[in-house]
Simulated assay, not measured.
Amino acid sequence: MAEQSIGALAQKIVGPWAWWQAALKNPAAIGKTLPVHEGDAQQGYYRAKNRDKVFEPVAIFYPEGSDQLVAYRAGREIRPDEIWTFCCRYPVTYEAYNAALEGKGWPDDDKTVASQFTPPDPTIGDNSGEIDETEKLKDQIEAALKGIAAYAKIADDATASKAQSLRNRLNELSGDADKKRDELKRPHLEAGKAIDKLWMPLVKSAKEGANTVRDALDAWENEKLRRRREEERKAEESRIAAEKSARDQEGETAVLEAPKVETQPAPPSEPVGQIRATYGKAASVSVKIVVDQVTDWVALASYMSNHPECQDLLRKLAQRAVDAGRTNIPGITVSEKAAVR
């Protein structure tokens, strides 16, 4: 009975802090075995992010001799129900709370990030004048980049947390710089769009007309190529027929010259490989072998499989299939790899 009385007394004393203490030991339980309800703030020490995404210390407690719960955020009194859902998932120790309240930062702070968000003294006015935004961002980015060296190798979760803070800050600075770049560039883009709206229809219509003429020229050159190949084919057939006829008449040892095939020479003003014009430059004409159809995809893939571009494409397709949950892909091995997003 004595032990039960002592236990009950201990529970009475510890009870008001029980939720916070349990949350400190196991943050993953918050919202699960440790329920969170709006308007039901729990006594303890926490932190919440401000508009700059920087953590501020939060204390929620019953003042001595009072049954009314109070809350303080960075030393300013606020209503507990206003801050509870924003801070409940970030419990901190009493020592960490006091250190942050004194301006010493948090144990898991990255020094560079913390230095860039040191709150100004509200009693001192800023008479430094407007600082050039580009120079300010440049200085902050350079300072943040110098901090990367501290995370060349990460060996524990505490260091990983600090590294992530620096990464977040660099991404934020990158976004700020990009927004400013976009803001300054936008008027020029709008002016460019107005110019394009006026001139691009003219550019496109003239180009489409030129391409229509080019298609007609392509058709004519292909017809000429077809005729030339037909003449070459007939000439070859005539040569073979003449040789066969000579062998039949004079025997296998006879040596004959192949009959000459008369072809129509190209006009001097239109040399082979060019289309001359009375206005502007001449167009060059080239003949190339093009792939018409694929008759055996497997054979083609096998033939091209040693090409780096083909291998890169196959690797990407395999990864896409793995991402989709496929497990029966031949010719590959897979492994688990953590990726920070």
Rank of each mutant, 00 (worst) to 15 (best):
A216I: 04
A177F: 08
P27A: 02
I329Y: 01
D40F: 05
S66P: 02
D81M: 13
G280N: 03
A242S: 05
N50S: 04
I83P: 00
G192P: 05
D52K: 10
E243K: 06
G44W: 09
G39K: 12
G273H: 07
G129T: 02
Q293V: 05
I289S: 14
G251T: 11
D215E: 15
E102V: 09
Q319L: 10
P187H: 02
I289W: 14
P16Q: 01
A339H: 10
L9C: 09
P308R: 08
Q264W: 12
R320A: 14
S205Y: 12
D132Q: 03
Q264D: 14
Q264I: 15
R226W: 07
A114R: 11
P330I: 02
V285Q: 02
P122I: 07
A301K: 10
A22H: 09
E221N: 03
D157P: 02
E190P: 08
F86Q: 11
I154R: 06
W199Q: 13
A299K: 07
V113C: 02
K153C: 09
D121L: 07
T112H: 01
N171L: 09
A2H: 08
G209E: 13
A235L: 09
W106D: 00
R79Q: 12
G175P: 01
T278F: 08
G280E: 11
V213C: 05
T278R: 13
A8L: 12
A235Y: 00
E270K: 13
I240Y: 10
S165N: 14
A48V: 07
A152L: 08
L189G: 09
R47L: 03
P330Q: 01
E208G: 05
A277N: 15
D109N: 10
D109Q: 11
I275M: 09
T118F: 08
Q164I: 15
R169I: 00
K204I: 15
V113A: 02
R169V: 00
Y279A: 14
I275N: 05
E252Q: 11
A282C: 01
P57R: 04
L34G: 03
R181N: 10
G331L: 00
H307Y: 05
K162I: 07
D109I: 01
S66L: 09
I13T: 02
P120I: 06
A318C: 10
L317D: 03
S115Y: 12
Q11R: 14
K136M: 09
A235T: 06
G129W: 00
D109A: 10
R239I: 11
D67C: 04
E133R: 00
V261R: 12
W297P: 05
Q68E: 14
T263C: 07
I329A: 02
A144R: 00
C88H: 00
